[in-house]
Design a protein around this nucleic acid. Structure first.
Lengths: 237, 237
DNA sequence: AAAGTCAATATTTGCGAAAATATTGTAAAT
DNA sequence: ATTTACAATATTTTCGCAAATATTGACTTT
């Protein structure tokens, strides 16, 4: 008889089919369904996603490239760990990618680009609630927030810069989800984006870039003020 | 730490086998062993690399994230296609990543960083031959060239920027291999790098960045002067 | 005790058959 | 001649077992 090792029965089976397995696993990781650095045992995943070994290994292999999963030969896959240092690295890389892309967008963007930003900003404002009562509200807000950032660089004309921004943002979201978002003062957050949008539309490249650099530290600061890093055994250097 | 107190009596085949399959496939693709956009049939790869389906699919899945392979569900994998537009995109993204990393390196680099650059420049100069008579000469030159670029940004302090640079460089190399490198005037090429090294060591950030931006167009220009794009059916807009 | 040995167990990795899906080729209908 | 239908073929994709490797634990030796 197979011996029961440790069951990970906290989360029920994920069923959403028709969606590629890779997307499903990615969503689970970003959502934080697995603890950071958790081992991803094949048997567990097989049961959870109700597929065989091959598709799972393939999906995880893809997610390595997205920075969400790590791999060591013969020792399997694990969720990418979280640390303050890593978050700083993400913020750094995002600044590099996103400022370059924004600069180009500001140079080349037409009125369609402008309209996209205005629309995204509107939706983001509308979806910023007083409080996050349920998960749907949070997800809706997050989606509009990320869409605004995407709209701002939408005219950069580089598929690679766009893809990199998306990838780094996914990695960033894992950290954002660690804080009870209540802690993020909504008014201030909205104002920052309004400022950023304004600068972009006025084609004030340098100022917009400076704003992004500042903006990217929000998550770092918020997490520093919580006591999250201690939980991960981080020395927070 | 895996301790090996008693040796295995038969040392396994160390030839190709010690190298992970992913690295072998990547090398083949970068080398141009498969034509751009070529379909990668499972049976073919299985025969070529002498492994089963699973390891191949896994390796290819990883290479998607490196931008060397494309995938379409139920239609399999293919080598990432090449085009002038794509090369411009790579150059663009490289400028974004590499200038950000170089700027930070110049700000934070210590004498160890400087020494690394000087050493890399020396080796690069030594390995630049009058003519590329055989493949080994080419590979040796390429390695030293890429190592110099890595050394320049080595003190940027961001593992993500370093990884991105490496990844984009791999993609870039596929294009560089298209030209008979003879066409690249060696003296000019060396001089450009000497200039770049000089500016970096003198901590002239803005000038060094401008030099990189200019430098990144070399491959584009060289390929434009050849008639490569027509071969790919490119309109070369 | 502490460290080493070795068997028992757990887990990952590779393999090829079989299922699922796409592509091609042929013939009938418009 | 062009399109449609459908069978025949080719290819991808999944699955579970078996092999390879890592981990655990009980037992011996120093």
């Amino acid at each position: 008889m197979a011996k029961r090792t440790h069951l990970q029965d906290s989360e029920p089976r994920v069923q959403d089919d028709g969606v590629p397995l890779e997307a499903r696993v990615r969503a689970e990781i970003i959502r934080g369904a697995f603890p950071p650095a958790a081992r991803l045992r094949m048997e567990d995943l097989k049961a959870r996603f109700e597929v065989g070994f091959s598709p799972i290994r393939e999906a995880l292999s893809r997610l390595i490239g997205e920075g969400l999963v790590e791999f060591e030969p013969n020792r399997g896959f694990r969720v990418a760990p979280l640390s303050r240092e890593d978050l700083l690295d993400i913020a750094l890389a995002r600044v590099a990618v996103e400022t370059a892309a924004l600069k180009r967008s500001i140079e080349h963007g037409d009125d369609r680009w402008e309209a996209g930003i205005v629309a995204a900003m509107h939706q983001y404002r509308r979806r910023s609630p007083i409080a996050f009562t349920n998960e749907a509200t949070l997800l809706s807000w997050e989606e509009s927030h990320d869409a605004l950032h995407a709209a701002l660089i939408g005219a950069c004309g580089s598929s690679r810069l766009l893809a990199l921004q998306r990838r780094l943002q996914d990695q960033h979201v894992r950290y954002r989800r660690l804080i009870v978002v209540k802690e993020v003062a909504q008014e201030v957050h909205i104002e920052e984006h309004e400022k950023l949008v304004e600068l972009a539309l006025e084609r004030r490249s340098a100022d917009a870039i400076a704003e992004i650099e500042r903006h990217m530290m929000i998550t770092v600061d918020a997490l520093d003020q919580s006591s999250i890093w201690e939980k991960f055994g981080e020395t927070a250097g």
